[in-house]
Amino acid sequence: MVTIGAVIFEPGNAVKNKTGGWRTFRPILDIEKCIKCEICYIFCPEPAIYED
């Protein structure tokens, strides 16, 4: 249900929305299998991943 002009009357009602549409999937780093594809580097926040 959308209001006229998409106005929000109830403060804090964002919790009712499913906002987890991004970063639902994330890579898990396995050092043994690492080929330095840098997918983890792109997904993870600065500076979580170091090349060495």
């Binding site: 959308v2 209001t3 006229i4 002009g5 998409a6 106005v7 929000i8 009357f9 403060p11 929305n17 906002t19 549409g21």
Partner: peptide, 23 residues
């Protein structure tokens, strides 16, 4: 429909995510 009034705050112009924008 709505009006800006400090005694009764509302959010005007929120983000319209893909789930709601078309409607």
């Amino acid at each position: 429909h709505y009006s800006l009034n400090p005694d009764k705050p509302v959010t005007v112009g929120p983000v319209g995510v893909p789930k709601y924008y078309m409607e």
